[in-house]
Design a protein around this nucleic acid. Structure first.
Lengths: 293, 293
DNA sequence: TAGATTGTTAATCGATTAACAATC
DNA sequence: TAGATTGTTAATCGATTAACAATC
């Protein structure tokens, strides 16, 4: 039960782009890339406090990782530290910023200005690091024309022109799930090659387009999984004696359950009736009939 | 870490293995747990279309993963498929739901009712799968008393009572970063053991408490990293000939740069002047002086 | 039965970590 | 110099994937 579970990729993105990209751009591992923003944030805080240098130990603590990992991560960027001394804060801020591409301007469009779109438009961290909201877009005539975060909401029809003239390469999708793929297609068609998806849908994109997703409900479900196991009386699924039984016993047990037909539905009271071919027992079935006492 | 909440699954069979179970709950890999919600979503869609069975190939496509991975994932749960046929949709929906703990009710508190808190309170996916907003909380007297998503915003002072009486074990933090750790401490003290953090801060929690974070600005920075490399005109950092040079050459180059003192600032125009001890050149320095043509 | 598809194996790949030589 | 701390190595761990025997 690791504390923090600073989820190497809280990103929760199975990185759809990674497969076809020259495996790892520049040889920097994805896991390392995902941590660079964390280091940068910690370094920025140190910088604001005018701290001149920091050791891997201190910086790692601030970023919530261990120091060996941090040093390994930095080793992919180059040798930016000084043995016996540590890292120069300002210098490292600059190097990581540059590595992440934050020394340039990234115009972004947000599509779907509902509650979440509003929240994102107002998000301070947006503008802070090179990202700039180029436009807010919505398909709903009732929303178009209103303002959010001081910007007018424009109609989807303007998408192509905005992307082209403002050189937008990053799009944020905050539409309802039903509209997400369609919006995604249109963004890609217009020239956007990186998409941050807040809609709970799997997006299909052509090669060369990166998608990352942020999914509240998935995060909550992962928490629930672990929470369920803290409570003490865990469901026994998959942890029954069956799991530790030798192969032949398991096979025999499965066969018996199949023959019996309805054992599972009995035990798991709210389970749907099993009518289809896959009606096999899971490992949490009552196996008292076939297991030695 | 044990908290006083009703046993979530008291109807389950006793678990003889619980006592000696290793830390990783049930031996299901984290990566697999993180994908279960994805499978569940795809299965739910199939269920709504009354599709009775699905093959690993079809389901994998719908979830955006490859089928070998899906079958491996499912193998951790048990044998819920039928060779030659596939998986029973309804049955699998139930099994995964139960595995994730979604067959029980999860009351959740949201702390910090700004734009994002509002958005989350209104988020449909929240209620859909066992999660229920038990309370909205804020410290600002101007916000307290207003309503969001039909619920009254209550004062932080009520936190402890709400958590205790409603058996809340999951908290969502949508406060400004400066308040996040303090709010987190208070949630933990009150008995919350799972936290979903939207504030851009690293939270420190005691053992037994899980934290997951959702961080827009980190996601954007990761996209920017990859985007930068698509553009074609990559910065040369870390990709210079130096990286491919043999050790001795690198060492010599570093030494020379150190002696020269200001080489880097020249080349990287916006780099901060290097004044501190760690003022070494990075791999993108101009090395023409020491590298063979 | 013949065809289809699962569940599992084993090879591979990538990420983490402790330890320590290099070196400031 | 002596102490401190990096950068790197190597061991380990965990995740992915293709392939295929088992079996419906």
């Amino acid at each position: 039960m690791a504390i923090g579970r600073p989820s190497p990729s809280s990103s929760q993105t199975p990185d759809p782009g990674a497969a076809r990209r020259p495996s790892r751009a520049r040889g920097i591992p994805e896991a390392t890339v995902a941590r660079l923003p964390l280091y940068l944030r910690a370094l920025t805080a140190l910088s604001e406090r005018s701290v001149p240098t920091v050791s891997s130990e201190e910086l790692a603590a601030a970023a919530g990782v261990n120091s060996a990992k941090l040093r390994k991560d930095f080793s992919y960027l180059g040798s930016y530290g000084t043995r016996g001394v540590g890292y120069d804060v300002e210098y490292l801020v600059y190097q990581i910023s540059r590595e992440l591409g934050l020394t340039q301007d990234w115009p972004v469009v947000i599509v779907g200005i509902g509650n979440l779109g509003h929240a994102l438009a107002n998000y301070g961290g947006f503008a802070s690091r090179g990202f700039r909201v180029a436009a807010l877009l919505d398909a709903d005539p009732n929303v178009v024309g209103s303002t959010a975060a001081g910007l007018p909401v424009r109609h989807m029809d303007e998408l192509e022109e905005i992307v082209a003239t403002q050189h937008v390469s990053i799009g944020v999708i905050t539409t309802p799930p039903g509209a997400a793929q369609q919006v995604c297609d249109r963004l890609v068609e217009a020239g956007v090659t990186s998409i941050l998806n807040f809609a709970p849908t799997v997006l299909t994109v052509p090669d060369g387009v990166d998608v990352r997703k942020v999914d509240l409900s998935i995060e909550l479900q992962i928490l629930a999984f672990h929470e369920q196991r803290k409570a003490g009386d865990e469901p026994s699924a998959g942890d029954s004696v069956l799991d530790r039984a030798p192969g032949p016993v398991r096979a025999a047990a499965a066969k018996l359950r199949r023959a019996a037909g309805g054992g599972k539905a009995e035990q798991a009271k709210t389970a749907p009736a099993k009518t289809a071919p896959a009606a096999k027992g899971g490992p949490d079935d009552d196996l008292s009939a076939v297991m030695p006492a």
